[in-house]
Amino acid sequence: MQNPIQLIGRATLGLFGEVGRLAVFAGRVKIAAVTPRWYGGEILRQMVRIGFYSLPVVGLAAVFIGAALALNIYEGGSRYGAEQFVPSIVVLGITRELGVVITGLMLAGRVSAGIAAEIGAMRVTEQIDALETLSASRYRYLYAPRFIAALITLPMLVALADVIGVMGGWLVSVFGLGFDSTVYLRNTLDFVTTNDILAGLIKAVVFGGVIAIMGCYQGDRSQAGATGVGRAATLSMVGAAVLILAFNYVMSTLFVEIGL
C-alpha cells in the first residue's frame, strides 16, 4: 500500500510533466505554422477534411440545438409572459456560446480523435520515422498543416452553425409556436451585434487550435500498436473537449470584462 501523500505527489508531478510536454509541443507546432516552409497542398487537403467533411455533423447539431433552445426559452419565458424574447435569446445563445461550443465539441470527437488515430497509426507503422529520414519535419509536414487548417475552418464552420442554429430556432418558433416569420427574423437581426458574432468567432479560432494540437500531440505520443492508437484517439477527444469547455469559460469571462 502506497503512502497517500506519495500518490498525490506522483499524480501532481505527472500532471505538471504532461502540461509541460503539451506546451513544448504546441510551441513547436506554432513555430512551424508561422515560419516557412509551408505545404500548401497539405493545408488545403486538411481544410477539406476538417471543414468540408464536418459540415453535415455541424449543421445537424446546430439545427437541433437551435430548435431545442427556442422551445425551452419559450416554455420558460411563457411563465413570465416573456415569449417575445425567444428570437433575441436564441441568437445570443447561439452566437456567443452554443454555436461555437457545440461545433468545438463535435469536432473534438470527429476531427481531434481522427487526427490522433491517423498520426498514431503513422507513428506505430514507422511512417513518422520515415518522414524524418526523408528530411521532412513532422512538425512542418504533418502538424502545422492540420493546425493552420483548423484555425481557418473552425470560424467558417461556427459562422455556418450560427446561421443554421438560428434557423433551427426560427423553424420551431414559426411552425410550432406560432411566431410570425418576418417579426422573428427582424427581432433576431435587430438584437444581434457584431460583438456577439465576433466573440464566437474568436473562440472558434482558439478551439480550432486546441482540436488540432490535442489530436497531433496524442497521435505523436502513441505507442503499443492498435491499443495505443485507440488510447490516443480517446485521450485527444477527452482532452480537447475539456480544454474547449475550460477555454470557453475563461474567454467568456474575459469578453464580459472587456465589454465584447
Binding site: 503513422m122 507503422t125 514507422e126 511512417q127 520515422d129 520515415a130 518522414l131 524524418e132 529520414t133 526523408l134 528530411s135
Partner: peptide, 19 residues
C-alpha cells in the same frame, strides 16, 4: 542533420510507405 539525412537512404522493416 538535414544535410546528413540527405545523404542517407533507409528501408524500414514495415516499408513505412505513406498510405
Amino acid at each position: 542533420r538535414e544535410k546528413m539525412r540527405a545523404r542517407i537512404g533507409m528501408l524500414f522493416q514495415s516499408g513505412a510507405l505513406f498510405d
